[in-house]
Amino acid sequence: MQSQLILNYALQFVVLGFVFLLIFDFINGLFERIRCAYIASSINILPYAPKSKAVFKQIDDPWFLKAEGLPSFTQTNSIVEFQLLLPPAKELPVLPQIEAKIRAITWNQLKKITSDYKLSVKGKRPLVEQRLLEFCQSRDEVQLQTVLQYISKLQAV
């Protein structure tokens, strides 16, 4: 409660300080106008009278002017070549990465992957690995990336 009270007083101080500044600036501006009016009334200023009347030349409407003196742009047949800072990226095949990760995981993790992807495989580890690789070969790159991330997540656990 103490900090809330201090914050309340601080906000009131800021708002009232701003209001006082506005009031003092207004009063100062009034005194400045009064002072300027007093100085202007005490000085005798002669009115300025020009000796000759200014002559202005009539100019043409810019919408109807012809474009003269503008630079002409000619087309050149030069081709600007630029060099990339980095070589083009080579896409790494995902299937060999998946194959290496499948060979590196444990038998329980391999069984979990096959059950999660609803692959019905009974037998020893080489048969299960082979079925999982056949499953991966029938998928596109996006699905393979998902499988790779899932295997990596299982290895991290």
Rank of each mutant, 00 (worst) to 15 (best):
I6Y: 12
I34C: 02
Q155R: 08
R33L: 03
L22A: 12
L70F: 13
K101C: 08
T74F: 10
S120W: 14
F24G: 03
W107M: 11
K153R: 10
Q143P: 13
I113W: 07
R125T: 01
A10I: 15
M1S: 06
K101A: 10
P50K: 02
F26G: 00
E91T: 07
K51I: 14
Q155F: 10
N28T: 09
V128S: 11
K122M: 10
Q145R: 12
K153Q: 13
F73H: 00
L21P: 12
V121E: 08
Q83P: 00
L127T: 06
A40H: 11
Q149H: 07
Y48G: 06
I6N: 10
P93V: 11
Y48T: 09
I98D: 01
L21S: 06
E81V: 05
P87A: 03
L7H: 15
S72V: 15
D116H: 12
V19L: 05
K101N: 11
R125K: 06
A104Y: 08
L144P: 08
K122A: 10
W63F: 14
Q143F: 07
D116L: 13
K66W: 08
W107D: 14
C36L: 05
Q12K: 08
K124E: 15
P87E: 04
V121H: 06
L65C: 05
D25C: 02
L144V: 00
A40E: 09
I113G: 00
K118E: 02
L22D: 09
V80M: 12
L86F: 05
Y117D: 03
Q155A: 09
N77V: 01
I102Q: 02
D60Q: 15
K112F: 01
F82E: 05
C36M: 12
L70Q: 13
I113Y: 08
D60L: 02
N77I: 10
G29C: 04
A54K: 07
I6A: 08
L86N: 09
G17H: 11
F13V: 07
S42P: 02
P88N: 06
L22K: 12
Y150N: 15
N77S: 13
E141M: 01
F135S: 00
S120L: 10
K90H: 06
V80D: 04
Q143L: 14
A40I: 15
E32T: 04
P47F: 03
I34G: 02
E129N: 04
L154H: 04
I102S: 01
Q58C: 02
V157H: 09
I98T: 03
I79H: 11
L154M: 15
Y117P: 03
G29L: 04
L92K: 14
Y9W: 14
S3A: 13
Q143W: 15
Y117C: 00
G123C: 11
Q130N: 02
I102R: 03
Y117H: 05
F20L: 07
L16C: 01
P126L: 14
Q4E: 05
I113F: 06
V55L: 14
I43N: 11
I59Y: 09
